[in-house]
């Protein structure tokens, strides 16, 4: 049985201009101790789906799901009060901007022990000892002294270590890291990623890594879910995904990487992610897709099987070539 089971999760936001569907029927399952990456560009709904899971969305959001199960607990039918007992304890999250994720008015020590107090209790002295232990664990030098430091006295990398310490304070079973290294320098990014991988091994927790950086995905993840315009378009093991992407979006994204460039010109993915006003009728990716044909513009895409990476596409790619539609005659169909 998997640790986290999400089925058909949809999140809609109410805006001044009407309903906006940020997450559209996303399903996901994560096993105990697994490292899953969710990749997508901005507006792909990758953060929103995880925030919905954590119950951290504002009141303008409407969340619906067929199933939302964590560690055998049904989160859909659970009250907000009960959910708070799980969140922060068994399921924790870290964010992109370490500088703004910590409260500038309180010391690092206070903010770590606060989490411990809420979920575990114990005496002041034991909490403090645990805080020192945690800071040691995340590799912050001189932890006793750092407990009394305020966030602005630490660098971005150190603050992210503190955020991680707070997140793992209650030994969560699942840690969600939302772009944990985007705001950090390359050498610090390497340190933080190593730390996360290391902690995952030591504490045996599952890790969901939300990122837009293909390099980070390639170097860390085991399984990858690709999201586009709120939908999950593909899910594969990391090696297979980079070797043979089945959805045209994944394929285009990978070939747009400068390091895969042949010559000075990069193959580009034309256009932009559809917004509130230009959502296409058929497949959401059709207007930008190099392989789109009539059907793609008319009918919403269907999910392919496991052998095609669950690609949300009428004709998933195999080795870069679209498979033909079964039954439907492609002859006579003019490719647009």
């Amino acid at each position: 049985m998997s640790l986290l089971e999400i089925e058909n999760l949809t999140v809609e936001f109410q805006t001044a201009q009407g309903q906006f569907r940020a997450v559209d029927g996303v399903s996901l399952s994560v096993d105990q101790g697994e490292l899953m990456a969710i990749v997508g560009e901005s507006g792909s709904g990758k953060s929103v789906s995880m925030l919905a899971l954590m119950g951290l969305l504002p009141w303008t959001a409407t969340i619906t799901a067929d199933r939302l199960e964590f560690d055998g607990i049904d989160l859909v039918r659970q009250s907000a009060r009960d959910r708070r007992k799980v969140i922060g304890k068994d399921m924790a999250m870290i964010f992109q901007e370490p500088m703004t994720s910590l409260n500038p008015c309180f010391t690092v020590g206070f903010q770590i022990t606060e989490a411990l107090k809420t979920h575990l209790g114990g005496s002041r002295a034991t909490r403090r000892a645990r805080a020192v232990e945690l800071l040691n664990l995340v590799g912050l030098p001189e932890p006793e002294r750092r407990l009394n430091a305020f966030p602005h006295q630490l660098s971005g990398g150190m603050n992210q270590r503190v955020m991680i310490a707070i997140a793992i304070a209650c030994r969560p079973k699942l840690l969600i890291a939302d772009e944990p290294t985007t705001a950090l320098d390359v050498t610090i990014q390497a340190q933080i990623l190593d730390l996360l991988l290391d902690l995952r091994e030591k504490e045996g927790m599952a890790l969901i890594l939300i990122t837009h950086d293909m390099g980070v995905v390639a170097e860390t993840a085991e399984r990858v879910s690709v999201q586009y315009a709120g939908q999950k378009v593909e899910e594969q093991k990391v090696r297979d995904l980079f070797r043979d992407p089945h959805h045209p979006y994944t394929s285009a994204l990978l070939s747009a990487l400068p390091e895969r460039a042949q010559g000075k010109k990069l193959p580009t993915l034309p256009g932009v992610v559809p917004g509130l006003f230009d959502r296409p009728e058929g497949c959401l990716f059709a207007p930008r897709c190099a392989h789109a044909f009539d059907l793609c513009h008319k009918r919403q895409a269907v999910q392919a099987g496991a052998e095609d990476g669950f690609a949300l596409c009428h004709t998933p790619l195999r080795k870069g070539v679209p498979t033909s539609l079964e039954g439907a005659s492609l002859e006579g169909q003019v490719r647009s």
Partner: peptide, 25 residues
């Protein structure tokens, strides 16, 4: 060297020796 080895490469089959930099700027 450290900068180059710290930059993630978008290729899961690429293995490399990480030259780890300790500490901060």
């Amino acid at each position: 060297k450290a900068l180059l080895s710290a930059t993630p490469v978008a290729d899961p089959e690429h293995t490399k020796q990480r030259l780890k930099l300790e500490g901060e700027l």
